[in-house]
């Protein structure tokens, strides 16, 4: 068997060194990703739970977002922006799930009380019913509108921050917010609720 020449040995040595460096880089990246993902997992999970309204589904969404984020981790140049970047992925995953829900809606059957009608709400249950009405109205919103509302009123982000995170124009964020609130208001009124302003209270 022919012995490898000196330059081939050198080339092989370089190749092995490159492989080792690549593997070390991958291990380093994995460690850094695990650290960052663990650090911002709470934020991502809570945001997903607010948008989706279902802790179990939020878990799946956060996990899917982590898989996607790991796949694209090498495209993230500035690791200091991991939180915003990861949250954007979470939001996108949630949007996909909301759209999937709209395509496969769960139809609620009317309760016996609704069918009978005229049953007055018990004392102290008004707040609960109001939340229930909000829940129904929120679910009817477009997924893009739901996300903007969640970021605005749950995360208390400004319009510009939302625009930056979603990579859409600020005008679009304003328009979506405006439309979302108007639709929520209309839906609540349709359900028989009316808004109470501070001077009315």
């Amino acid at each position: 068997m022919k012995a490898p020449r000196g330059d081939e040995r050198e080339k092989d040595g370089q190749g092995v060194a490159a492989d080792i460096a690549a593997e070390r880089g991958r291990v380093d990246a994995a460690a850094e990703f695990s650290r960052l993902a663990d650090r911002y997992l709470d934020t991502a999970y809570r945001l997903a739970s607010v948008i989706l309204g279902d802790p179990t589904e939020a878990e799946d969404a956060a996990h899917d977002a982590a898989v996607l984020a790991w796949r694209r981790f090498d495209t993230l140049r500035d690791r200091d922006r991991f939180e915003q970047w990861f949250c954007r992925i979470v939001v996108n995953v949630c949007r996909d799930r909301l759209r999937h829900r709209r395509r496969h809606p769960i139809v609620e059957l009317p309760s016996e009380d609704d069918e009978r009608g005229g049953l007055a709400a018990p004392e102290g249950a008004g707040q609960l019913l109001a939340r229930d009405a909000l829940d129904r109205a929120f679910v009817r919103l477009d997924p893009d509108h739901q996300i903007v509302v969640a970021l605005r009123f749950y995360r208390d982000l400004t319009v510009d921050d939302i625009a930056r995170r979603l990579e859409i124009p600020a005008g679009t964020v304003k328009s979506r917010l405006h439309q979302a609130i108007a639709r929520l208001r209309a839906e609540l009124e349709r359900q028989g609720w009316r808004e109470e302003f501070p001077d009315e209270a």
Partner: peptide
Amino acid sequence: KPERKAPIGGRV
């Protein structure tokens, strides 16, 4: 539909 005249509690 049941009559629900109760206010929602504040601004939307």
